[in-house]
Each structure stands twice: as structure tokens, then as C-alpha cells.
Design a protein around this nucleic acid. Sequence first.
DNA 1: GTTGACGTTGACGTTAAGGGCAAGGTAGCG
DNA 2: CGCTACCTTGCCCTTAACGTCAACGTCAAC
Lengths: 140, 140
Amino acid sequence: MAATTAGARGEADSRTYSVGELAAELGVTTRTLRFYEEAGIVTPARTGSGSARAYGARDRARLVLALRGKRFGMSLAEIREIVDMYDAEPGEAGQIRRLLESLAPVRADLQARRDELERTLAEVDDVARRCRARLDELGP
Amino acid sequence: MAATTAGARGEADSRTYSVGELAAELGVTTRTLRFYEEAGIVTPARTGSGSARAYGARDRARLVLALRGKRFGMSLAEIREIVDMYDAEPGEAGQIRRLLESLAPVRADLQARRDELERTLAEVDDVARRCRARLDELGP
DNA sequence: GTTGACGTTGACGTTAAGGGCAAGGTAGCG
DNA sequence: CGCTACCTTGCCCTTAACGTCAACGTCAAC
């Protein structure tokens, strides 16, 4: 199946990356990329003969999202879910509605985290402010 | 050493919690609290005879901070550092200055994370928007 | 004075997220 | 042809952050 490795339509795929290349670019090891593949986050194509992984633009995008997700404490499983819905094929109305619904809690969670971060940031700033005040009090 | 379990000054300590109590309140297990103690995040006092842990307001506050930190992907070690500086004794000028300096990168990191979150949130919203548009296109 | 709820330490098990290494394939290059 | 660089698939090791279990103390209640 599949025609030219290109997606549904629009061959603006540009290029394709090898593990090493992509790993270097993303600042992770090749082991990590392989691990993410096992976790179902990416499914790179293979080169005809060598069975070497060939990551496309879509894989790259998913990895970027995954690494971002990891940064604020998501598990690979959570990440997988989110990334999956990110680039799900449009499909028919029912499917889209389901996607929208599953998006809601994700959004809520992200927002909650952001708010917490905001609060934390404010607290840190407050500590800093108090420090400076104390220094003013002491210093000449 | 130490006088009454109370901090530097101001006995507004109110009450003290047992492991179970505090764990329930914070929504974690007692094991977790003990683990955080090993990790140096809290150092609850002990009751005279039984050697049972008695968590004070300060411990509670540190745990709240720690759990918040965990939510956005910090390791217990990182958490410990931050929490430590949060309620470090004022100390002399040099110490305060050092605290201020170590606070800067933390703040930068938090801000970076928040910005990333913001961007992710925007992307999620964008996906949702496109979903709705597509539904409008399809629906009657 | 024993029962039960709750606490204690200690030790071992588990899960997630990789690290690292061995043994081998393959593609270009001189 | 052989060298080198990069890739492949196992497979086991490690670290963090707990879970779980055992064996035992303690304190109030009955």
C-alpha cells in the first residue's frame, strides 16, 4: 500500500531524516528516538533495502510536540494520546466531534498547569523582591 | 538545641499533622511523604515517645510547593533546591545575594516553561478551531 | 490486657524512561 | 576488496519515584 511515502495529498514533504540526524537536531540520543517509536509516538518509514529509519516531516513534528510535552511533565503515554489527536485525519463529522471532546480535558489540564506555573512564578518573584528589599535595608 | 519547635519568631504555627492526615490532605500516600523526607524535602519533628512524625505548617508549605513542582516535571532534587531557597533564613548580605543569583536561572526556566505551555495551549486551541470550522462546513 | 487504628523502620518489587553494549548489516569510497 | 561511518535489533543495566509487604511499637478504647 501507499504510493510515494507522501501523505494524503500535497507532496510538500521536503526531506527525510535519519535517526542520527534527527536525534542531533532535537538534542536527544538515537536511543530515545527508538524508544519513542516503541512507545508508538512515531512510526518512521524504512528505506527500501537497509531497513533504516527514514523520519519525515510529520514524524519530526510529532517528536517536537512530544519533547515539549515531556518538558512539562507528561508521560509518554499521555503525550502519545495528545499527539495522536493532533494530526488525526479529518474524517467524518462523528470522529471530529469525538476529537473535539477529547481535546477539552487536555486543554483544561494545560491551562491548569499554566496557571500553577504563573502562580509559582509570581511567588518566585516575590521572594526575589523581598531579597532585594532586605539588601536595601542592609547595604550602604 | 531549638526551643519550642517554633520558627525564628512568631508562634503562629497553629497545629501539627500526622503522616496519614497530611497525606490524605495532599492527596498522596504516606509512603510518598516518607520518601520526600528521605529526599530531604521535609524534616518533620518527632513526637516525644513514639518517634512518630509531626508535620508543621512549614513542612506542609514545602510539600505543597514540591507537589506543584512535580506537576510540571521537576525532579525531587530540583524541587529540593528550590524549596530550600524559598524559606532560607534571611542571613547576611552575601548569602542573600547568592540566593538572588541562584533564583535567576530558576525563574528563567519557569518562564520558558510557561511560554512553551502558552504556545502549546494556542496550538490546541487552533486544532479545536479547525475542528469546529470543519464541522460547520459539513453540518446542515 | 487485648484489640484495633495508626505509626515505625527495613527491605524488596515495579514502572517509566532511557543508557550502553554486543553482534551484525549496508552503503559509499579509495 | 577492505575500510569507515552509520544503521539495525536484541538484551541487560540504571535511576527516580514510588508500591508493597513484613514485623514490630504505641496509644486510646473497651
